[in-house]
Design a protein around this nucleic acid. Structure first.
Lengths: 232, 232
DNA sequence: TAATGTGAACCAGTTCACAGCG
DNA sequence: CGCTGTGAACTGGTTCACATTA
């Protein structure tokens, strides 16, 4: 699971029409979706909970319980209809409309994200790039011109952008977040290694590449200690 | 937390000398470390659980319980000694030795990762770059020459590399993982959008950029549904 | 019959609230 | 007195195992 969540501080309300889905389940739905697409490509038009679970890297009981939150979609004795389930999950995740994303910070990482085809192929459209550095403004990346961050509010407004990605250095991130929020962005994906504070109702997810390695480091350390055996 | 974990399938054993620490706590220690470094830079040499918790974006009770797993380090009535706690956490995470990392795949994302200063400044050293594409072999990135993936086993062995980063397209990732594992790598950070299968004892963490956006998309979708109010 | 869907048991993780200590 | 450290209560999530159904 990634990490920081702000907004909707209490529980998801849940309406009859829009049942509330546990956060842990939500975090796995995209993985199921990916697995389903790969099964579809392989020619399967139906899949059992077991085969889907394997493709998604979870156990089948968990998968069935997760899917049960979207209403019952399977057929007993048969499994799930792949195309139907893809539609189901895309609907729940709100992927039926292409979502516009603003990317702030076109340094090393931001540059790569701007060119990352995975966003484009999975429901998102990078609509605008921003940077604070005037020497970078005007640069063309992947058919998009880098704009100065002062233009952000206007662009977010006209392009109806609801999601912002922060790929700036840590010291600039909070300022960028403030601008994004004031411009009407309500979801932020933060790659800067720092905590963002945002008002209620704004969701933040954080990805910290170094943290991932540090977690692996812990396990390496532990494995080494156990292999060397008997104290150290 | 990020996601896939393989290896140590049961529970962490835990020795008197190396107490077992809950996985959720391990995942937060790097964040505490970062917060501590920023407090240290700001000149604090002591910090209360409350102030540290704010800097790390968690609540103070959780932070205290997390730290209690490393043994008691605070002083009642005062707080924690910042430098001492930094040392404590670095020790537990195994960050006292610089860890060598092999990066496979120098496409869009891999290129950015190779140049990412956050790895270097936080305990890791990218020791070698690999790619399968012969036209990329020989390219120089950040003072490192891209090698052909066939050389991987030899380099991993001589440089004693225990951690591998996969930044290849999904279809190549499992093959790369196999090579890494056979070469002696025991921890993998996977940026490819696919499930890897690895033997017990090998840890895998997965970062999927598009998944993060899809999770945000869900919340956007929900917020929109609730704002539009009364069914849809 | 072969699979789903789900109550019930279980487990990990979080929060509370306060005793204990410097 | 103010803070940490921690048992106890609670919450959310996972797994089990089976009744149910196409």
């Amino acid at each position: 699971m990634s990490q920081q969540r702000t907004g909707s501080p209490g529980n998801t309300p849940g309406t009859p029409d829009f049942p509330d889905i546990p956060e842990a389940t939500v975090a796995r739905l995209p993985e199921y979706l990916r697995a389903l697409h790969s099964l579809a490509e392989a020619g399967h038009d139906t899949a059992s909970s077991e085969s889907l679970a394997v493709a998604a890297g979870v156990n089948s009981a968990k998968l069935r319980k997760d899917l049960s939150h979207l209403g019952s979609n399977g057929t007993r004795g048969v499994g799930y209809n792949v195309e139907r389930l893809i539609g189901q999950i895309e609907h729940v995740l709100g992927l039926t409309t292409l979502r516009a994303v603003a990317l702030v910070g076109v340094g090393n990482l931001g540059h790569a994200l701007a060119g990352y085809s995975g966003f484009t192929t999975r429901g998102f459209h990078i609509a605008a790039l921003f940077d604070a550095d005037p020497t970078r403004v005007g640069e063309r990346i992947n058919n998009l011109v880098v704009r100065h961050i002062d233009e952000l509010a206007a662009v977010v407004d006209t392009c109806r952008i609801a999601i912002g990605v922060i790929a700036t250095p840590a010291h600039a991130a909070q300022g960028v977040a403030d601008v994004l929020v004031n411009s009407g962005v309500t979801s932020i994906l933060n790659f800067a290694p720092c905590v963002l504070s945002v008002p209620d109702g704004v969701d933040v997810r954080k990805v910290d590449l170094a943290v991932e390695l540090q977690i692996l480091s812990f396990h390496e350390h532990r494995k080494a200690a156990l292999t060397g055996t008997v104290t150290l």
